[in-house]
Amino acid sequence: MTELRNLKPNKFDRIFNGFAKRLTKIGIGLAGSQNLAVRGRKSGEWRTTPVNPLTLRGERYLVSPRGHTQWVRNMRAAGGGELRLGRRVEPFTAVEVEDGAKPEILRLYLKKWAWEVGRFFDGVDARSSDEKLLEIAPGFPVFRISARG
């Protein structure tokens, strides 16, 4: 089984994420990116990071390509957050997806965004077997999100 991952951003990641965050703040999503805002589990303050929301069969998902990061821990505690693009703010609730349901989600995520996040998947790509995707699933949290009404 794959160990729980928490890959810290390197210098390139910080520069790229800062750029993506600024673009989404003014309303330009880089390849569909949006800013995820979630309340800190300890501070209660809003924390933001760029994410790539994914739609599969009418359901929307957030995948953490860097593993069990701070935003993942905050999302688990808060049970939701906001997706922001420019002035548009979309509140949502989030439910974590079980590992057994992740292969199809991870496959589509890698198909769409491997150019950006593929290096975090250690050689696993959209063509990998379901067995391989199941093997790595514990290291990549996935949340199904629904608009909060």
Rank of each mutant, 00 (worst) to 15 (best):
S128F: 15
A147V: 14
D130H: 02
L36T: 07
S129R: 05
T69N: 03
L36W: 06
S129W: 10
L83D: 02
L36V: 08
N52I: 01
G118R: 03
T49H: 03
A126C: 05
K11T: 08
L7K: 11
I145R: 02
P141R: 00
E45G: 06
R88L: 10
R107F: 03
G27N: 07
K132N: 08
E59H: 13
R73Q: 10
G100H: 14
L7H: 10
S146W: 00
V97N: 05
D13C: 08
T55E: 15
L23N: 04
L62A: 01
W46K: 10
S129T: 13
R22W: 06
W113N: 07
D130F: 01
F19P: 01
L30S: 02
D99R: 03
F12R: 12
K112D: 12
D13V: 05
V124C: 05
R39K: 14
G139W: 09
P141K: 00
G79M: 09
L56W: 02
R76H: 07
L83H: 05
G18Q: 10
I105Q: 01
L23M: 14
P103E: 08
S43K: 08
G40T: 15
V124L: 09
G139Y: 07
T93C: 13
H68P: 05
G79F: 11
T48R: 06
V97H: 09
L62G: 02
L54P: 13
L110V: 10
R57G: 02
R144I: 09
G149Q: 13
R84F: 06
R88G: 00
P9E: 13
A94H: 07
A137S: 06
F92C: 04
V72M: 03
G27P: 08
R39M: 11
T55K: 11
N35T: 12
A126W: 06
V63H: 00
E3G: 15
E116Y: 15
K112T: 07
I145P: 02
I15D: 02
N74C: 11
K8G: 00
